[in-house]
Amino acid sequence: MQQHEFDVFSEMLQAVAEYCGKPLSPGVIAIYWQGLKDLDLPAVRHALNAHVQNPDTGQFMPKIADIRRMLGGTTQDSALRGWAKVDKAVRHIGPYASVAFDDALIHRVLHDMGGWVGLASKTEDEWPFVAKEFENRYRGYAMRNERPEYPPVLTGIAEADNVRRGLHSEPPRLIGDAAKAEAVMQGGTSRPLIGFATAGAAALEAAQPLRVIDVRSAA
């Protein structure tokens, strides 16, 4: 969830608390937020709805652990949704344009995997293994309830080259919900992340031996 979704989350949680006869203080709501903010808001809403309909436990206010337990495979679902966005963007946009997704974890995971250009250099034979690596890395962050630092934009070949030449670059392509993608960009950091070069440098290095997926035949 993003910070701007806190009020909706709070109203939703208080409605369930009122239904269960257990009003929540602002401090307790903040604890719920910290414990669940790595999840998607629709997923949390689904878990709460499922809980109140449970004939065995629906009369009790769910704790954070209960909500996460109700979600079960939600981290996998989120990872698969994230990969679907990535796969479509690679095939329809390609490595030249810079991109910003509506999910900050996508940015961090792709950065950890070598960046946007490095991803697009993979062959179709490698693609299933790339998808599995993405899913495992994404779920690892989500299940640990981590909100890691991430680059605000995944740099493409054109922007990396323009930065090197001191030229103007086009704005990044926004993938998914445009408003959320803008929020992801605002929440990113331009500091180099541990163990990797800056996005621009990584893209230029990766661009030299580039083997780009044929997005025309894959579309």
Rank of each mutant, 00 (worst) to 15 (best):
196 F>E: 00
209 P>S: 06
167 L>G: 02
210 L>E: 01
211 R>S: 14
114 G>M: 00
181 A>E: 11
77 D>T: 11
169 S>M: 02
13 L>T: 12
187 G>A: 09
39 L>K: 13
54 N>K: 10
107 H>P: 08
47 A>Y: 15
146 E>G: 13
79 A>I: 09
194 I>V: 12
191 R>C: 01
39 L>H: 12
132 K>T: 12
203 A>K: 02
108 R>Q: 05
67 I>D: 09
206 A>F: 03
167 L>H: 09
14 Q>C: 05
84 A>S: 12
32 Y>E: 14
185 M>Q: 13
124 E>F: 14
100 A>R: 10
3 Q>E: 11
208 Q>D: 14
49 N>P: 01
177 D>H: 15
118 G>T: 00
143 M>N: 13
216 R>E: 03
110 L>Q: 07
218 A>R: 13
46 H>V: 07
69 R>K: 04
92 H>E: 14
113 M>P: 07
206 A>T: 06
176 G>M: 07
116 W>A: 01
96 Y>M: 07
56 D>W: 09
211 R>I: 11
83 W>V: 01
175 I>Q: 13
139 R>K: 02
121 S>R: 07
214 D>V: 01
76 Q>D: 05
130 V>I: 04
193 L>S: 04
19 Y>V: 00
44 V>S: 09
126 E>Y: 06
107 H>G: 07
130 V>D: 00
29 I>N: 08
66 D>M: 11
187 G>V: 04
124 E>Y: 08
124 E>K: 04
7 D>K: 04
82 G>N: 08
6 F>K: 07
71 L>M: 15
75 T>Q: 03
117 V>I: 09
167 L>P: 00
13 L>F: 10
172 P>N: 05
123 T>G: 02
84 A>Y: 03
160 A>N: 02
190 S>Q: 08
131 A>Y: 10
74 T>E: 12
146 E>T: 14
208 Q>N: 11
106 I>D: 08
36 L>M: 15
42 P>Y: 08
104 A>Y: 10
19 Y>W: 02
207 A>N: 12
191 R>A: 07
82 G>A: 15
217 S>H: 01
97 A>V: 05
210 L>W: 02
200 G>K: 01
101 F>H: 03
2 Q>S: 03
124 E>I: 14
33 W>Y: 11
78 S>V: 02
67 I>T: 10
127 W>F: 04
9 F>D: 10
25 S>P: 00
219 A>Y: 04
4 H>E: 07
184 V>M: 06
106 I>E: 06
135 E>S: 05
7 D>P: 00
82 G>M: 07
143 M>T: 02
88 K>S: 11
76 Q>C: 04
68 R>I: 15
147 R>T: 12
34 Q>E: 15
36 L>C: 15
95 P>F: 06
157 I>R: 01
103 D>P: 07
42 P>F: 05
85 K>I: 06
120 A>Y: 03
17 A>F: 09
104 A>G: 10
64 I>G: 13
102 D>M: 07
119 L>N: 04
150 Y>P: 14
